[in-house]
Design a protein around this nucleic acid. Structure first.
Lengths: 207, 207
DNA sequence: TCCCTGACTAAACATGCGTTCAGTACGTTG
DNA sequence: CAACGTACTGAACGCATGTTTAGTCAGGGA
């Protein structure tokens, strides 16, 4: 099952995803990808036209997966902003390789990454609207940066994982740890770091 | 003054900083660096021993600048958490090239980047202590993630600049815009997105 | 059965890479 | 002045890269 069940094309794409995530695109040779897939380097050209074509195929695959996860989420009637915590768990938490690849994609400004970020931003805005409505419609002062702040809180640990992890006891994307972080983010967005001492109604069902 | 006043060694380092920031290390050839500096490729080896040595020199230079900026900041008696807003303005706001380089450094886990992040984390913790003291010592619930959240809010826009900028009207690191974002971060950390409607004592002197 | 298409390979190609080498020009030191 | 070390150059070396080519092999329709 590991990789040998897949077609050659798919095995190349998987191997490329892994190596691009680990070392980056420019630092990964087509030969290395082929070797990791147990195939000949010429197959990269045969299946994808060029190394750049291979990258495009990997991009499409990854962004497709994430787009699907986001679409699932919109459909579900998850309560409040639990959803963005859930989506980060489902996408980012799932696979270290995917995280590594996303990390590198997000800091370029390829069309693919721009589209992904626009999608995430729209999600954050929608989430924020729901959150505002749940808070009784009051919105404190300037909210221009709010969706970006929300995204920074969610994407920050993804982007900073390699440097952040050594400063955290447990694996940052362990489901429990991630849930704790999501809860902390929710508290921060609602009340700040100092608001509302944990007196009554501290624990909520969702998240 | 642009570059010709500098020694060949310094010109190579500056050119490398710019190109590494734009294209990444692996995608930048020693020949390209030398050409950008108006020098012979062999000089890269003569001055730095290898291309990797050149990277080390650039790293040292960049991290030195940032370390100095952070040290300045500790010395000054800036009030409250204005300081981290100021430091991001002074370091990140200053130079797009520096931002690009930092972006790439922070998502590897080289010793240099680990040291830088540890430094930033310590700064965030100190800042947070001061902020907590100013809030009357009360700290709401779990604060385990607080310093990381703070760093995400500050570093997020730096890391995401390429994908974020197209969604923002004005240049993200324009001093005014950055000040506005810093103020928004401060409000978020203190009261959340919905707390404390802007009734009395809205504007404060610092930041 | 034949033939064709598509997956696949080994070998080779041209190019660009990091690096080395031999040598020139120049300011400093003896 | 001679000797030296240092900044610097053009040309070359060996090698890895992305890609091409020619060819093998299996499967499926006519």
């Amino acid at each position: 099952m590991p990789a040998s069940d897949l077609t050659g094309r798919a095995r190349l794409r998987e191997a490329a995803l892994r190596l691009f995530a680990e070392r980056g695109f420019a630092a990964t040779s087509a030969r290395a990808v082929a070797a990791a897939a147990g195939l000949s380097p010429a197959l990269v050209i045969h299946h994808f036209g060029s190394k750049e074509g291979l990258r495009a195929a990997v991009d499409e695959d990854v962004l497709g997966r994430i787009g699907a996860a986001l679409r699932d989420l919109d459909g579900g009637t998850e309560d409040l902003m639990a959803s963005l915590g859930v989506v980060s768990a489902r996408m980012f938490g799932a696979d270290p390789v995917l995280r590594g690849y996303l990390r590198r994609v997000l800091l370029e400004d390829s069309p693919a990454s721009a589209a992904l970020f626009a999608r995430l931003l729209a999600g954050a805005r929608a989430e924020l609207d729901r959150l505002t409505a749940a808070e009784g419609g009051r919105s404190g002062g300037e909210t221009e940066w709010a969706p970006f702040q929300m995204l920074c809180l969610i994407l920050g640990p993804l982007l900073l994982e390699p440097v952040m992890q050594p400063n955290v006891d447990r694996p940052m994307f362990d489901p429990e740890v991630l849930a704790g972080r999501s809860a902390a983010n929710q508290r921060l967005l609602r009340h700040g770091l100092f608001g509302q001492p944990p007196s009554i109604a501290d624990s909520q069902p969702g998240d």
